[in-house]
């Protein structure tokens, strides 16, 4: 605060500070109209796509898949991303509506908050497709169909694989994702649902590591010290956390994949590499390549065949373990 007393400098300091701050804050506002500037003379149908805007490899693959599928289907795709804010997503949808696009695809950040803007779309007769995560709206005719991964089923598949592998008896450490996120809740509840019928399987520690590798490693280190040799299985809500747990287990002088069974969800390429190396036992795929299926539905919608489309379409999840990882790894895109 001493500089502020020095009046000759303070004014200059203020101007510079303001300039610097605005330079930092500006990019945040600039992107919402990215989708504007359409080419009106184009005869190709125009699809508006609103993405969440986080940086994970999974999300990257998801965006890529939608873009490629749109190009293959001959659509003109306008892309907007919410930069992890629901408000930005709603604004982007409004802007697509006022531009009069032919259809809108939304990968919503949150389940609620969509009624008003979807009603606007309905009034303008613009069909809406919900991708990846679900929305809760009072009138479900506001969107045509939902396409996404079944995060509840993923937990069931993981638990079933485990039950078979350990013959119904194991002491499990659970590494949870971010608290309150729908995949975390689903992957936890469904896992518990299955092991309820197998009293031999017991969760001895359960902690959140926020889908992060570093945090998972640190949490796992602490659990290893507290529970020591009791731990037989680690169930991680995503691959990154499983990779962190594997590092911690190795540093404790044990062999992940042998001394401690590790299973996870997502099916990223790095998880396949870990399975081939024998360190990860199983991953349940949560497929981000939803683009082709979305474009197929868009094709039907634009052709007016909306009646044949189911309200909810789940992308199939597959289970991969060390027995089939090696042959699959080459075809992994993400």
């Amino acid at each position: 605060m001493k500089n502020l007393l020095n009046t000759t400098f303070s004014r200059r300091a203020f101007v510079f500070s303001a300039l610097a701050l605005s330079a930092v804050l500006m990019p945040g506002c600039a992107n919402k109209d990215q989708a504007a500037g359409g080419d009106a003379g184009d005869k190709k149908p125009t699809i508006g796509f609103v993405q969440t805007g986080d940086l994970s490899d999974w999300r990257k693959a998801h965006t890529q898949s939608v873009k490629e599928a749109a190009e293959a289907a001959g659509y003109n795709l306008k892309f907007a991303d919410g930069q992890a804010k629901l408000e930005n997503q709603v604004k982007a949808v409004s802007s697509f509506i006022s531009q009069g696009v032919d259809a809108i695809i939304i990968a919503p950040l949150e389940v609620s908050g969509w009624d008003n803007v979807l009603e606007k779309a309905k009034k303008r007769n613009i069909p809406v497709l919900i991708l990846d995560r679900q929305v809760e709206v009072e009138d479900d005719s506001l969107y045509v169909t939902y396409i996404g991964a079944d995060t509840y089923n993923e937990g069931i598949l993981a638990a079933k694989w485990l039950v078979e592998k350990v013959d119904g008896k194991a002491k499990v450490v659970e590494l949870q994702g971010s608290q309150g996120a729908s995949p975390t809740i689903n992957r936890r509840d469904s896992f518990l649902e299955v092991i309820k019928d197998h009293p031999g399987i017991e969760i001895i520690a359960s902690q959140a590591a926020d889908y992060e590798l570093t945090k998972a490693k640190e949490v796992m280190e602490a659990i290893l010290k507290a529970k020591g040799d009791e731990i037989e299985v680690v169930y991680a809500h995503n691959d990154y956390m499983a990779l962190g747990a594997i590092q911690a287990i190795e540093e404790a002088g044990k062999k992940p994949g042998e001394d401690i069974i590790v299973l996870s969800i997502d099916g990223m390429k790095s998880a396949f590499e870990a399975m081939v190396a024998g360190k990860l036992n199983c991953t349940v795929e949560c497929n981000p390549l939803q683009g082709p299926k979305a474009m197929e539905a868009i094709g039907k919608i634009l052709a007016g065949e909306t009646d044949g489309i189911p309200k909810k379409q789940m992308v199939l999840d597959k289970v991969f373990d060390q027995s089939n990882a090696a042959e699959e790894i080459g075809s992994r895109k993400y």
Partner: peptide, 9 residues
């Protein structure tokens, strides 16, 4: 806190 099992959030 991790050893005690307090959730990270």
């Amino acid at each position: 806190l991790y050893t005690w099992g307090v959730p990270s959030d």
